[in-house]
Design a protein around this nucleic acid. Structure first.
Lengths: 317, 317
DNA sequence: TCAGTCTGGGGGAGCGCTCCCCCAGACCTG
DNA sequence: CAGGTCTGGGGGAGCGCTCCCCCAGACTGA
């Protein structure tokens, strides 16, 4: 019995006699043999592993981020369903960035998926230059670097603001996300455009997509314009923070102030009152991004995708 | 110039002349050379990679799980700080379980960290038998299989119930987590013990640690005992669900019904009213678990750790 | 029956590293 | 100055696989 035959059996090649296959399989199960991954990777020049690269904010800032959980989970699932291993990479500080680059260059992975990179991040450009198949979950500031899957931020934000307008709200403020993130920018622009189209003034406060920043921004907004009667928050987490500030300030929602969020995370169902929000299909987006990468891996090319968003009416607006 | 010298330089061995080191370094940066990971792994018999194995509930059930985000993030960070790569593994269906086993047996990782395994899961036992260094985030149902880090569930739950008792609450119910999870069981037992010690009857509903299950369980509880005036939920997510049901049922919190949660996730700060809860240091627990594994890797042994919990008083009780 | 074709299995090279062994040359000591 | 010691660098084996090449043996058709 030669190792060639064993190799053939294990890799499921058809040109092997059933009898031999039997013998090998028996031996394999009996001995509990498992082929060595490193050796295999070495010779085949592939690893069956995909990196999920998540930009990690400086320590301390992190909360229980629903985006992280949803995206990482959905992506991992899709990847595992396709028989790929997942390597999770947190891209935080500058020196960790170098490590990431080295890691990918060392051939540890067959491809990578970038998640929520901010505009200033040099990583996408660096990775694109390595020639490794890379896709992005969310559109990047620099276009054309790699294919991506995003949701329709502009359409969603427009629907949200339009809804507020349709309700007859007069002073509609917004809590924006960090402007170095593409999604935050698009949502803010759409808000501005909608208000401008109906001859209204923008009232903007800046957050960073966390609950606490939403609460702070709402406080700011209330101070800037005590008369405001509606707020569009660029994500649900900040909307939840805003809800809290409004409660503390004695404003009733939606009677005094209407609130609309963005994302439709599960928590939006459980706020008081339940949050009206724009649903962005995060799980689906992650799965699509994986599909994109898989396409890129097999075909050498893949086309970016924009997923539709939908306004979910609940009680806060 | 021989490859031996290059190898020595790259691996930072001291027995190499500064001059040669210079030359090699120059060549390396100029050519952008990065050593091949697979080849290295093959010969050194180690991968510098640690698996984080998360039990994944059957699709659909998953929501934005703060536990997942916190633990995976904190653990990854600690691992990367120690120079380890992270391999994220979702252990879902039975067949995926086999894949996990194969994967680990193939020598792709140097060690593994189990997260939130339920009691029925055969995976811990299987992994323990492979001889691979493995630790658990959270105590396992089968003791002695591997070292673990857990928080003081019993102490925390006792404090929570005691607080309700001290307030003079008469009918204290609980929403338990899934009983195949060790943490849920300990919290329930502590609740029972505390009530028994003060001669009171237990009122128990079962949830599965999700918001929606908390809302459902609360409905059940209200039906079982309309007179109840306090609820201890085995985690914050279920407490949030309970809050919603209570609001819908027209009960005031904490006036009519007091609510205490467990975990102190960030969302607990933003509920209406803010949630009184038991803080369990999830991030710290994850970091400790990593430290445990690292110890195990270097020393060959490591001792389990129990982290203290603390009651955080807010407005819901 | 024999040349010719086809199929399946064995031998062995080689993937890109690390690490051991050995040797050249510098240095030291009596 | 000769013999011994020590230091640093080069050669080469080998990690455990896959895959190519080739050959033995079965099978076909004239």
């Amino acid at each position: 019995m030669s190792k060639s035959s064993v190799s053939r059996v294990i890799n499921g090649e058809p040109t092997v006699a059933p009898e031999i296959r039997q013998i090998v399989m028996a031996a394999v199960t009996e001995l509990g043999y498992v082929p060595n991954g490193a050796a295999r990777n070495l010779v085949t020049q592939k690893t069956n592993t995909i990196a999920i690269i998540v930009s990690d904010p400086p320590a301390g800032l992190v909360s229980d981020d629903p985006m992280f959980a949803m995206v990482v989970r959905a992506a991992s699932r899709a990847l595992e369903a396709a028989g790929k291993q997942v390597s999770l990479v947190l891209a935080g500080s500058a020196e960790s960035r170098l490590r990431v680059e080295q890691y990918l260059a060392a051939g540890h992975v067959d491809g990578a998926m970038l998640v929520s990179m901010d505009g200033a991040d040099p990583l996408p450009a660096v990775l694109a230059r390595t020639g490794l198949p890379v896709v992005s979950h969310g559109r990047l500031a620099t276009p054309g670097l790699m294919p991506y899957v995003d949701n329709d931020n502009v359409g969603g934000a427009t629907k949200a603001v339009q809804h507020l307008l349709d309700q007859g709200r007069q002073r509609i403020a917004t809590i924006s996300g960090p402007l170095d993130m593409q999604a935050a920018q698009e949502r803010l622009n759409a808000y501005r455009q909608s208000l401008q189209d109906s001859d209204r003034r923008s009232i903007v406060a800046l957050g960073d997509f966390t609950r606490i920043s939403g609460a702070d921004a709402m406080r700011q907004l209330l101070q800037d314009d005590p008369q405001l009667d509606a707020v569009f928050a660029a994500n649900d987490l900040m909307a939840i923070g805003a809800l809290r500030t409004l409660r503390e300030a004695g404003r009733r929602v939606p009677d005094d102030v209407a609130v609309v969020g963005f994302d439709d995370i599960e928590a939006a169902l459980y706020t008081a009152p339940p949050l009206t929000t724009v649903r962005s299909p995060m799980g689906e987006q992650a799965a699509s991004t994986v599909r994109l990468l898989l396409d890129l891996l097999t075909n050498g090319s893949a086309d970016s995708v924009i997923l539709p968003t939908e306004l979910i009416l609940r009680e806060s607006a």
